[in-house]
Design a protein around this nucleic acid. Structure first.
Lengths: 197, 197, 197, 197
DNA sequence: CATGAATGAGGGTTCATTCAT
DNA sequence: GATGAATGAACCCTCATTCAT
């Protein structure tokens, strides 16, 4: 029953399908994409997909699941010395804003807003781990734990909001996208109060 | 052609339909909602909806349009004296996070991510004006204009991100929702660097 | 009850509607044309049409009815002396092929093939009178009555068939449309056997 | 891709659907017929039809296409010796007027008058070949080619016109339908002029 | 396990017709 | 008689899912 080769074949086929699904979803969106689209893009038959996934939504869930795994693996090696706090924040912003595959992100967000099941999975497999990682990153700076958790949520919330403004096409955000980490870090670290008075 | 009573009747019927649509959309989501659902909820016939709106998407556009009008009218009177900067930021965060009708917001965001036409309208009728209002609020504090615009985007981005974490059910954000404006304002104004020292 | 002015008003309104209907039918066809189209083109309200006509089909019937009246009135004055038989046939073919308003004819034919009620009316109000008129035209040439009736049907059938080939876009028929009466008359009168020898 | 058995299955299913469509169209007409009607009559599901045909109109096109194929196959063997010209004409008229399936012919004509795409197809796949065949039939009788082509169009036009008068229920045409080929041939060959003077 | 034809429920939309004003 | 908003039945078509081969 536990045939490792079988398992690998299954995993390979699952990935093949998820690749196709991710590609087509990113291109056309979740609802406009048909199972036939995905099957054709994967070079297999419609029915085969249902041997590996419960239904269309499960494909999105599978994509999310893979995202997490990839995110963990791709986690850039934390520089041994990030220097001062300003550098740390900038490093985080850079990494977070450098989301590749924005168009797929859009689809995931869209469907998540509307599908509780997906929402929970996103929360558990993406958001939660991400936040925890960020907490680790910013920990050991002497912040009380509760303050730290809030801080992390505020910053990553800002990241998400900026990405959405980017998607929306806000000209300032789009135009200054590359210098954003630097400038936002400045604002965050020193506080906007200082800039003002 | 220009019968004011006719116009009022038309506007009333449009609003009746949009009310129903907003309600059902918020309840079931955009795609799962059928025209029949909306018509039934509005107490009219299916076809009547098409006397007032081009198609199903136009209903969402109409809801967005009304949101803008309402937002302008409901704009809370700016306190004559907001006192120091910290108070101003807290005031803004409070107003912004107090989004009512989260479930409808969810639907709009969801569909917007996926429908360019809707995205443009959201950008133009909601996001852009909101940002400009915020710019006015934070202006006259001696910030260079470019810096100001960035600041505003960063903050409102944070707001949007926190709302999404709220929707996602992040326990810390949900639990501390009411004290969030105060604490976030503190972080923003004084900078997170200070907290860390 | 018999108010002649009322009658005239009613007739005028009926004609106004039929004009619009004929125009739009000829332009878009019967099924694709909506009552709204006709009403708009006539400058009246949808409902008004139903004060004068039972339903959409009755409009086509009304058009047919008017065609007959017009056909009778427009009947070109028969030249006092048509000369020989050849001239007579050519004259008839010319008149018959010079159908104006082919596009409306198309619509009528189309719907007639499919609507028995309309078919009967066409037969009675258009075809029958036309054939009788043709019989009168060709009478007094010494043909036995039965032979005459057959002859008339054969010729007018040929006319109808040629018009349809014209509609279908047969290149020879289209290109030689104007010289057709002359040449066809030649064939008919002398017989195709003679040409072959 | 090139599985002959698959191809046969596909062809069989297509024919099954076209049979049903032709039957129901002939019975109820094109527009009044619903896809459900056809599916039910074919004993399959609605959706299956769309696996084989683009849309409802394509069914009519398919019927036309098949008509051509059948027409070619059913072409009656030309008698080796048709004898004199009179016999030839009578033979042609007989074959042409013996259209079976008048009710389907009605539907096709009707829709063709109104649908340019269908019209072109009819012209190319039915009318044109039919005319060419007739040209071959009447050729080699010493007629100049242009005269021949006109003659063929006149005669086949007459056939079409007579069929339509038959459909319309003209009593003379209906009553003498069987003797028509003979009598019309007589008229055509010898010319109507001879009968008259 | 792969295939892909068959399924059939479901939904957006149209539009002839009605009728209260 | 004129209006045109309201009606709602009806239809074409899509597509996720199933299952016999």
């Amino acid at each position: 029953m536990k045939d490792p080769i079988q398992d690998q074949l299954i995993a390979a086929r699952r990935n093949q399908i998820l690749d196709a699904a991710a590609h087509v979803f990113a291109d056309k969106g979740f609802h406009p994409t048909t199972i036939k689209d995905i099957a054709r893009h994967a070079g297999i038959a419609d029915g085969t997909i249902y041997n590996y996934f419960e239904n269309k939504t499960a494909l999105l869930m599978g994509i999310l699941e893979r995202m997490r795994e990839q995110a963990i693996q791709q986690m850039p090696p934390l520089p041994t010395d990030l220097g001062d706090f300003h550098n740390l924040v900038r490093f985080y912003l850079q990494a977070a804003l450098q989301q590749q595959n924005t168009s797929l992100f859009r689809i995931v967000i869209s469907e998540m807003m509307v599908n509780p099941e997906l929402r929970v999975q996103y929360q558990q497999t993406i958001l939660e781990p991400t936040l925890q990682m960020a907490e680790m990153l910013f920990a050991e700076r002497g912040l009380p734990p509760d303050e730290l958790r809030l801080l992390v949520r505020a910053i990553s919330g800002m990241v998400m909001g900026l990405i959405m403004q980017h998607i929306m096409g806000d000209s300032l955000v789009v135009d200054h996208w590359d210098t954003l980490p630097d400038r936002i870090a400045e604002l965050l670290v020193n506080g906007i109060g200082r800039a003002v008075s």
